[in-house]
Design a protein around this nucleic acid. Structure first.
Length: 288
DNA sequence: GCGCAGGGGGTCG
DNA sequence: CGACCCCCTGCG
């Protein structure tokens, strides 16, 4: 396949570091020139930002402009969303200032499910390593600029992979979860397109929870970070618990703060933009 | 430098 | 509510 290039100038709310380091994705890596290269939905893409110009180039299985607009959520008005959230309180305003270039990617649902199952009780360098090995072993190879890249394996491509093999790749105790979830999806016990077409987020969440290795936190991450794009969910991990307690709850022992309590505040304050608010707060608290 | 604890984007039983 | 695999990090 041939390389395609697409350029955009003066795009609001788009900073590479914010997008790729805010914790939503695992397959983007920084290059020496400050650009990032990643593999998604069968594409290999490099993104570079200089001044007010963003350059996308790579090997795409379609029109690069359409692929980029979809994946990077370019048709959503983040400026307006940020204005709305900033008015809620000074904390939100500050966190948004910090992560003002965040965009929530439209990641492939299947890949997001598997990636966040792997993320459980794990750290980011190791998660990335596992996903790379998984892709290298079972994905399709794509050559680009003299380097080899590997697509994230489809459920079909993982069909005959054994639990032992997953263990060899370093999955640890998540081996069986990956095996079982892949099986459930292949057997259509959970139909991914049905999830996409179901507007009832709580129903979709319930279905996701039936998958092995998917609990409340992972389910919410899938809802928010995949192409399901449900912005009303509020994934709660240690960092979010920390920042919510610091700002709004002020319990002496943050581990004693209940999820229910956090969810209630999130819903009251942020409503159907809770997921976005979570990202700004999470990124701000973890990095700043 | 190297060896060794500590702990990590939770989930499951 | 404790165990869970691996490995990454930090400290001695």
């Amino acid at each position: 396949m041939k390389e395609q290039i697409y350029e955009i100038e003066n795009l609001d709310s788009f900073e590479l570091k914010d997008i790729f380091d805010c914790g939503q994705c695992f397959r983007w890596n920084i290059e020496e020139d400050g650009s990032y290269t990643g593999v998604f939905k069968g594409n290999v893409l490099n993104v570079k930002k200089q001044e007010n110009k963003i350059t996308f180039k790579g090997i795409c299985n379609g029109d690069i402009k359409e692929i980029v607009e979809d994946y990077f959520d370019l048709k959503r008005d983040y400026k307006k969303i940020k204005e709305t959230l900033s008015k809620i309180d000074p904390f939100m305003e500050e966190s948004i200032k910090y992560g003002s270039g965040i965009r929530i990617l439209n990641q492939d649902l299947w890949e997001t499910i598997i990636s966040f199952i792997i993320s459980a009780n794990n750290n980011i360098p190791r998660i990335k390593g596992i996903i790379e090995r998984l892709s290298k072993n079972y994905g399709k190879e794509i050559d680009y600029n003299g380097k080899k890249y590997y697509t994230f394996p489809t459920a079909e491509e993982l069909k005959d992979v054994s639990v032992e093999k997953y263990r060899e790749l370093g999955l640890g105790f998540r081996d069986i979860r990956l095996y079982e979830t892949t099986k459930m999806i292949l057997e259509n016990k959970v139909n991914l397109n049905d999830l996409r077409n179901n507007p009832n987020t709580m129903e979709v969440r319930e279905t996701l929870l039936t998958l092995s290795g998917v609990g409340p936190k992972v389910a919410d991450c899938i809802l928010l970070f995949s192409d399901l794009k449900r912005f009303e969910v509020f994934p709660i991990d240690v960092w979010v618990r920390r920042v919510m307690n610091d700002l709004y709850i002020k319990n002496e022992d943050e581990t004693k703060v209940s999820k229910k309590q956090i969810e209630k505040i999130a819903k009251e304050k942020f409503g159907n933009l809770a997921g976005l608010a979570q990202q700004y707060l999470f990124y701000w608290r973890r990095e700043a």
